[in-house]
Simulated scan of single mutants.
Amino acid sequence: MRLSRFNLKWQLVLYGLLTVCLSALYLFVFLRYGTQWIDASEWRWAIWCGPLLIAVAIGYFSGQQLQRRMDSLYVGIFQLQKGNYSTRLPAIGRDPFAKLFDDFNELAESLEIRLKHLQSLGEENVRLQAESNEQAVLGERRRLARDLHDTVSQQLFAIHMSASSLPKVLERDPEKAAAVAEQLIHMSFAAQRQMRGFIAQLRPLELENRSLTEALERWFPDYCNHNNLKGSLNISLRSPLHDALEHQLFLIIQEGMANVVKHADAKHVKLTLQETSSQVLLQIADDGKGFVQHETGAGSHGLSTMRERAGKLGGQLEISSRNGEGCRVKVSIPKLQPATDSGMKEDGQHGEAE
């Protein structure tokens, strides 16, 4: 790469020619006029010292110029390394380092512009992430409010109505009052069971310090015990899953288990999580009362939420159920293969070619 039209090598050649010319001029003047004041025995030293001093002076002057340019370039690179992207080198006109200084300034300006763009994108991503999190929180609040209204709220209202009528029924028909009391016990137990399910959903689970397998081995038995379920857990994963997939899978499992507690009236539930070469498969199967699929809306039993979460990962949800035969919910998530080294090299080659 040529630094400048006025190349460094020609500058050094000129300094060399200047040294030769000045040395020749010195010798000419010395031999013409200097011999009159200096003895013949001192000519040898005078002839050598003059050109030597001229060469040292010109070498020091040229080296000092080069050193200043190198120092300026070093300071500029040091400032860029420390993150001061507004650093610029001065214009030096016709100089061997002029092109290098100009290229450095263009590089610094390009880095500064790119850094500003990255900061803008980072701020925009933070803002969008905050909005997304806020929308997710609002959506979760709406879902919990809807579920509480559809289940616990209605049951508490029914308990209140039955309890209000119990004194009058007790006066008129003690036997019927005993049946009402038994019904109150059953409804209060069901409400307590469903409320435990909601509390289990709201209870925070730290996935940062443990894998999904470790979290499920801790959470699933506790959830089943709190809801009087016999649960069996079967996990067979070949490799660790990335954080986003683990988080969404756990939310799907929470929603599916909540559906079992609220609607299935099941005694046993089986949770299976396994991995193939191309998919991650999740299955929740219970021995509850089941339902007829074409008679159930697409958004019922929280299935729409599970289907939406699976869709975010490019997966799909399948339901198999009949009246009196339980229900099986199967979620399949495709495994996206990372880019190969050869592909990355080809991309890099394309980028270099462009």
Rank of each mutant, 00 (worst) to 15 (best):
M1S: 15
R2V: 11
L8H: 02
W10C: 10
Q11H: 04
V13R: 02
Y15T: 09
L17E: 14
L22Q: 08
L31M: 15
Y33I: 12
D39L: 10
A40F: 03
W43Y: 13
G50I: 06
F61T: 11
R68S: 15
V75W: 11
F78M: 10
Q79P: 01
K82W: 02
F101G: 09
D103S: 14
E112F: 04
E112G: 02
L115R: 15
H117A: 07
H117N: 02
E123G: 13
N125C: 11
Q129C: 03
A130N: 14
V137T: 14
L138Q: 14
L144D: 09
D150E: 06
M161L: 12
V169H: 05
A178C: 03
L184G: 05
A191Y: 12
A191W: 09
R196M: 15
P204V: 01
L207D: 04
E214K: 03
A215P: 00
E217M: 01
Y223W: 12
K230M: 12
G231R: 07
D243R: 10
A244G: 07
E246R: 05
I252V: 14
M257P: 01
A264M: 06
E275K: 04
Q279D: 12
Q279Y: 08
Q293A: 15
H294E: 12
G302V: 01
T305Q: 02
R309I: 05
G311I: 02
K312S: 04
L313E: 01
G314K: 05
V329C: 12
K335Y: 02
D341L: 09
D347A: 13
G348C: 13
